[in-house]
C-alpha cells in the first residue's frame, strides 16, 4: 500500500515535469533545426538561426529597448516603493490602511485594463507614444510589487534597529543609509530583479503604449505573425538563456549573503 503510494508519487512527479518542461524542450531543440520549419523530424544541429537572429537589427534594437525600459522602470518603481514603505512602516498616518490598499490596488487589475486606461489618458493629453510611455505603465504594475515586498520586510526587527540608531545619535539620512538600506539589501535586490523580469517580459502594455521603438516581446510578437519559424525558437531560447543566467547569479548572491 505505502509502496504503491510512493511509486504513484514519483510517477506523478515525472509526468508533471514532462508536461512543464515539454514546451521549453521543444523550443530549444528546434532552435537548432537545420530547416525552415521548427517541427519534427529534427535535422541538425545548426546554429544558422542564432546567427540570423543576432544579425537582425530590429530584434537586437528591441532587446536593447527592453533592457533600458526594464532597468529604468524597475529602479523608479523600487525607489517609489521603498520610500512609501518607509513612510508607512515608520509613521502612524491617518488612513494608513486605505493608503496601503490604494498602493497595492494596481496588482489586482489586469494589465490590459491598465494599458487601456493609460492609452486613453495619453490620447486625451496629446502625449505621443514612446518607450517612456510604456515605461510609465511598467512602473505602475511594479510599484505595488516593490512596495509590498519591502513593506513586508520592514518588521519590528528593523524598526528596533532604526530606533537604536537614532538613540545613538544618527539623523534620518544616516539611519536610512547605515541601517535601513543595508538591512533591507536582500529584499531590495529581490524586488528590483522581480520588477525587472516583470517589465522585461511584459507584452500588452508595451504593445499598446509604444509606437516606433518597441520592446523585445512586441518585436517577437510581430515576428510570430509571419508564421512559425526556427528564428522565433532561436530568439526565444536566447531570452530564456539570459533569464536563467540572471536568476542563477541572483540566487548565488542571495545564498552567499545568507550564508555569511
Amino acid at each position: 500500500m505505502t509502496r504503491a503510494w510512493h511509486l504513484l508519487g514519483w510517477v506523478y512527479l515525472a509526468l508533471a515535469f514532462g508536461f512543464i518542461l515539454l514546451p521549453v524542450g521543444v523550443l530549444v531543440l528546434f532552435s537548432f533545426q537545420d530547416g525552415r520549419l521548427p517541427v519534427p523530424p529534427f535535422r541538425g544541429p545548426s546554429l544558422r538561426w542564432y546567427a540570423d537572429v543576432l544579425a537582425d537589427r530590429r530584434l537586437m534594437a528591441g532587446l536593447g529597448n527592453s533592457l533600458l525600459v526594464a532597468s529604468v522602470s524597475a529602479t523608479v518603481a523600487l525607489g517609489l516603493g521603498f520610500l512609501a514603505a518607509v513612510g508607512l512602516a515608520r509613521h502612524r498616518l491617518p488612513g494608513a490602511a486605505l493608503l496601503r490598499l490604494v498602493l497595492i490596488a494596481p496588482m489586482t487589475v489586469s494589465y490590459l485594463i491598465i494599458a487601456l486606461g493609460l492609452l486613453s489618458l495619453y490620447n486625451r493629453a496629446g502625449v505621443g507614444l514612446s518607450l517612456w510611455t510604456a515605461g510609465v505603465g511598467h512602473v505602475v504594475i511594479n510599484l505595488p510589487l516593490c512596495f509590498a515586498i519591502l513593506y513586508a520586510a520592514m518588521g519590528p526587527h528593523l524598526r528596533a534597529a532604526e530606533r537604536a540608531a537614532r538613540d545613538l545619535g544618527a539623523g534620518e539620512a544616516a539611519v536610512l543609509w547605515h541601517v535601513t538600506a543595508p538591512m533591507l539589501a536582500p529584499a531590495l535586490l529581490a524586488a528590483w530583479f522581480l520588477a525587472f523580469t516583470f517589465s522585461w517580459d511584459e507584452f500588452i502594455i508595451a504593445f499598446l503604449l509604444t509606437r516606433f521603438d518597441v520592446t523585445l516581446p512586441v518585436e517577437i510578437w510581430s515576428l510570430l505573425r509571419s508564421g512559425i519559424s526556427p528564428r522565433a525558437n532561436a530568439i526565444g531560447s536566447l531570452v530564456f538563456l539570459v533569464s536563467v543566467v540572471v536568476v542563477m547569479v541572483v540566487q548565488l548572491v542571495a545564498l552567499r549573503r545568507t550564508r555569511r
Binding site: P156, H157, R163, A164, R166, L168, G169, A170, M183
Partner: peptide, 16 residues
C-alpha cells in the same frame, strides 16, 4: 533621541 544625553539598551538588544 539623537540629541539627548541618554542612550537605551533595548529589550530585544536591536543590534545591527
Amino acid at each position: 533621541p539623537k540629541d539627548r544625553p541618554t542612550t537605551t539598551m533595548f529589550q530585544d538588544y536591536a543590534l545591527f
